[in-house]
């Protein structure tokens, strides 16, 4: 009963709350009527071409699923060995943490903290934020922290650099390939999985849609 009432109220709530009556382009400040593109289409600013919104079908459900997958994959990607090197009879394996620890031991703590933040901590925080935001929107449970989480998600997004780290692995591999015998561990496969999930998540999470849903949820 409550569920049907909710479904009935949904379109009403949408039209009664004039939250986003106008919008403005964030890069050139052109005043616009909100575009309502179809799922899968993109809305660009007519003056400067900025990508305003890119709604997807089932954006919230997909974000929820992908962030859950990412949170699961982060565990083996961090704990299992990624690369094993055999050099002149000595062998050593490393994961995401070994570089950070080695830099700490060298007292290069600034670089170590930066690498730890951008390759381990912030991807984890970002996945966690995407998970709690999409979970709350999925079960339609308002929370005072939703806006706070969403703002932090937007600000931290560019500091999680999994894809750059992957490129770093490729360059390091090419540099070592001549002199050493290199084997890839299971951690690297988990890391590649995490990379794919992360890219899909970034594509799926449309900030415009999410902010609209959040403001609808908190108005009710």
């Amino acid at each position: 009963m409550a569920k049907t009432a909710l479904l009935f109220l949904w379109p009403c709530a949408f039209s009664l709350v004039p939250v986003y009556a106008f919008e403005a382009c964030p890069e050139c400040d052109l005043l616009l009527n909100p575009a309502e593109p179809e799922h899968g289409d993109k809305a660009h600013c007519p003056r400067c071409g900025y990508l305003l919104q890119r709604p997807h079908k089932h954006s919230i459900e997909r974000t929820l699923a992908l962030s859950l997958a990412g949170l699961i994959l982060i565990v083996p990607a961090n704990l299992l060995p990624m690369i094993a090197v055999k050099l002149l009879g000595n062998s050593q394996d490393g994961n995401l943490w070994s570089g950070v620890l080695a830099l700490f031991n060298e007292e290069m703590w600034a670089v170590a903290v930066l690498v730890m933040l951008s390759s381990v901590l912030l991807p984890l925080v970002n996945m966690g934020l995407a998970f709690v935001i999409s979970l709350h929107l999925f079960i339609k449970k308002p929370s005072n922290y939703l806006i706070f989480w969403m703002r932090w998600y937007q600000h931290l997004n560019e500091w999680a650099m999994i894809e750059v780290y992957a490129l770093g692995i490729i360059v390091a591999w090419v540099k070592l390939a001549d002199d050493a015998d290199i084997r890839f561990g299971f951690g690297l496969y988990a890391f590649v999985g995490l990379l794919i999930v992360n890219a899909m998540l970034a594509n799926e999470l449309d900030c415009y849609t999410f902010w609209q849903r959040i403001s609808q949820l908190s108005k009710k």
Partner: peptide, 16 residues
């Protein structure tokens, strides 16, 4: 950040 990550990987791996 590519160069920084590459160095951190090398520093962690080649430590013999």
């Amino acid at each position: 950040m590519l160069d920084i990550f590459m160095i951190s990987i090398l520093v962690g791996l080649v430590n013999m």
